[in-house]
Amino acid sequence: MKRAERADAQRNRRKVLDTADRLFGERGTGVSLGEIATAAGVGAGTVYRHFPTKDALLASVLDERLAALGDYGAAMLRHPDVEYAFFEYLRFLNEQALANRAICEALAARGDWQEPSKGDGRCVIDSPLAALVAKAQGAGVLRADLDTRDVRALLAGCTAMAQSLGSAERAAHLATLFWDGMRAERNHEIRNETSAAPVIRNEIAVTEDPCPVCGTPIAHAGTGRPAKYCSPACRQKAFRDKRKGA
């Protein structure tokens, strides 16, 4: 019987946490414990039994949010595609920030984005982000003049600008522009463009040997047998001289 009560208590706690996470994200941190209890379908006493104050409930919500962000960052660090992993982590952070502005503001105020956690001494957001930045730069897919602070600042700027648009589609488009600006420049093969040093075909070129009659440099077409004389007149003169000699 006691085991059933414990399971029931755990389910009620989960209901309260999930409901608080949703309401804090939708309406901000000003939501009361009574409103959360009503939305979760439990009594106010159940909420107070697990979370004596709203700050305690908010702290638990934030801890779960940070754990999810950290787990996703760890998963991206294990992903074999370095470029995908880096930009996917940015997309996930941006998506979470847009969907849960109040919660993200509370996280930022708490300092968990930059300060090491008490559990393992690593920054929940910055540690995987810094590692992903290093891997992406090592693979040549991210600009070399960026560091973790730059990426975090661009992420925050993208989130703030996207929130002001009021459109998920425009926000996604804006995020794509931000991410593309972080990519390293790559050398692309030139196709269908004029070469800087075009190859001369079927055009007049100059040989190295001069005309044996007048000494003028010989011009000839790029195809066919090389010309022996510079002009028909020199060719005829050479032919006459050859006959005279015979």
Rank of each mutant, 00 (worst) to 15 (best):
K54D: 04
D55I: 04
D55A: 15
A56K: 10
A56R: 10
L57A: 13
L57H: 12
L58I: 15
A59D: 15
S60T: 08
S60N: 13
V61R: 03
V61A: 01
L62D: 03
D63S: 06
E64G: 15
R65Q: 05
R65D: 08
R65M: 08
A67H: 06
A67M: 08
A67Y: 05
A67I: 07
A68K: 14
L69E: 09
Y72T: 13
Y72A: 11
A74L: 15
A74W: 06
A74I: 10
A75N: 09
A75I: 10
A75S: 12
M76I: 06
M76A: 11
R78A: 15
H79A: 09
H79R: 05
H79T: 02
D81W: 08
D81I: 01
E83S: 10
Y84V: 12
Y84R: 15
Y84H: 15
A85Y: 13
F86M: 13
F87L: 01
E88N: 12
E88Q: 14
Y89T: 02
L90K: 02
L90C: 10
R91G: 06
F92D: 13
L93V: 07
L93Y: 11
N94L: 11
N94P: 00
E95A: 14
Q96F: 12
A97P: 00
A97E: 09
A97W: 06
L98V: 01
A99E: 14
A99I: 06
N100H: 14
R101W: 08
R101I: 10
A102T: 00
A102S: 14
A102E: 03
I103F: 03
I103Y: 07
I103N: 05
I103G: 09
C104E: 04
C104T: 04
E105I: 08
A106D: 00
A106H: 00
A106C: 03
L107Y: 07
A108N: 07
A108K: 07
R110I: 00
G111I: 14
G111D: 09
G111A: 10
G111C: 00
D112L: 01
D112F: 08
D112R: 10
W113T: 01
W113N: 00
E115D: 12
P116Y: 05
K118G: 05
G119I: 06
G119T: 05
G119N: 06
G121Y: 09
G121C: 13
G121K: 09
V124F: 03
V124P: 09
I125P: 09
I125L: 15
I125C: 11
S127W: 11
P128G: 12
